[in-house]
Amino acid sequence: MGLESVMFGRKLKNPMILASGILGMTRASLEAACENGCGAVTAKSLTLEPRKGHEGPNIVEVEDGLLNAMGYPNPGIVAGLKEFGGWKRSEALIISIVGKNKEEFAELAEKVDAAQKTLGATAIEAVMSCPHTPGYGTMAGQGAPECVASITSAIKKKTELPLIIKLSPSVPGEGKAAKAAEDAGADAINMGNSLGPGMVIDIHRKRPFLGFGVGGMSGPAIKPIVIRCVYDVYRSVKIPIIGTGGINSGRDAIEMMMAGATWVSAGSTAYYRGPEAFGQICREMEAWMKSNGVSKLKGMIGAAHD
């Protein structure tokens, strides 16, 4: 009985993963997320060079969601790997990388691989789905299946580490992109990122509120879209799926698993419920399973499919 899961051969105390970009700027904050109940944590996405990110405001609350445009603030791959390195906890560490093209992704993966001896990471996550940073993600057309395939195979050539490809819920044809990633050697799909981009205009100042103008939407409002994406991807690939988007309760997490997710990942919930949210969601999952006679996660994964 319980929430135990396995990720690429590593035992996890639960299937809850801290999403990249949330509280993951430092090693200490990743450790705090583990203490707060995450079974795995994703470090802040790393680029080749340090980035300050977009000018503020960087985030704004909307009805049932958050709209953010951080712009990938990060210390760069070299300082980042030093910050997160030497991971010894039982929770899994996922290193997230973002590049402008397959060459950058390959170089980043090579650097992670070279550091792995002391790094202690369980997987690399390559993000091709940020909706609000020029030159990256969907703003650079990285969501297209052929682009996903070429980046995936470029990374796979440079690393032995399991590779997770993080796809956007904003680009039609998630199933095709996921299949392209699988065929190119991806070990898992992270289905979900912030949705959009969207915009908030302040009517008093008659201007877009976010410093970057547009931002990606997260939080409870986007959950039905991500559920549908995960459902489609589950039908398209055999590799496991991380479901990301709008998970704010144990029921949300179970719904995501029934759509086809092996693991779930959350971020905005840290705003709604505080940093303790991750453990609380896991306890809610456990309570639901108990009262519904479900003893293992396995019985729920993809349960919504015929």
Binding site: I22, I59, N68, Y271
Partner: peptide
Amino acid sequence: KCGMGVCGS
């Protein structure tokens, strides 16, 4: 950066 306990800056 965010002011609301999310980004970790």
